[in-house]
């Protein structure tokens, strides 16, 4: 039962891994291009273990941003993990502390996506042999993603060392963010958040300590929230 739940978790994660591999490769290449030492770039994949935050950190490391701004930006970018944590908490309440710490470490966008679907649909019934072992599904999905992310990052770092500077791969970072922003631009409040944040960031580039990014992000988030409330009220 455990093995089958574990394998089901891996299987559910497989389609997502197809998209994760090129993303990890690109991260590895760009981290090296931004001047991050190879070991630290690899360390970021296991210690931070959060794709979009790693791309943002790569950009900020390359721009020589102070550490405090990097920490604050990471906090904002990864705030959504509070939501994931709250969402899976009722399903892992009965587990030992060891399991909780392990599954929390593996709680990424990609593992959350398949696990919460499994928890809320496939094994919704309260208490039977399948639901009691469903944390093995979470573990399978999380570990499949973890190994794929580490391996693709490592290959990317290896490839990054071979890329000549003339290719201007630093431009792949804003391009990555263009691809990442697309799914969030689905309604007016989302677009308003993006426009305000972009304009403020562009105007505030010269602010000391690179605080422009954080001020712009907060301005965008507040704009989106207010626009959303205006619409639903």
């Amino acid at each position: 039962m455990r093995a089958s739940a574990f394998l089901a978790g891996i299987t559910a994660e497989l389609p997502i891994l197809l998209g994760v591999v090129p993303f990890g490769l690109i991260y590895g290449v760009l981290a090296l291009q931004a001047g991050i030492p190879a070991a630290a770039a690899l360390g970021m994949s296991s210690i931070l273990f959060a794709g979009s935050a790693q791309f943002v950190a790569t950009q900020l490391f390359g721009a020589g941003v102070p550490g405090a701004v990097l920490l604050l930006t990471t906090f904002i970018v990864n705030l959504r993990h509070l939501l994931y944590s709250a969402s899976v908490a009722p399903y892992v309440r009965h587990l030992s502390p060891g399991w909780k710490w392990l599954l929390a470490y593996l709680l990424t966008d990609e593992a959350y996506a398949v696990t919460i679907v499994h928890y809320t649909t496939v094994t919704r019934k309260r208490d039977n042999a399948v639901t009691r072992e469903r944390h093995w599904f979470f573990l399978g999905a999380g570990l499949a993603l973890w190994m794929t992310w580490q391996a693709s990052t490592a290959v990317g770092i290896f490839l990054g060392a071979q890329v000549p500077a003339g290719w201007q791969l630093d431009f792949a970072l804003p391009l990555t963010f263009i691809a990442l922003v697309r799914p969030s631009l689905v309604d007016r409040p989302g677009v308003a958040a993006a426009i305000v944040a972009g304009v403020v960031a562009t105007a505030a580039v010269t602010l000391p300590l690179r605080l422009g990014l954080i001020i712009a992000a907060l301005a965008g988030i507040i704009t989106g929230t207010l626009a959303d409330r205006g619409r639903t009220a």
Partner: peptide
């Protein structure tokens, strides 16, 4: 609104 704001 974090992703549209930060990425933009």
């Amino acid at each position: 609104f974090v992703p549209p704001a930060v990425f933009s």
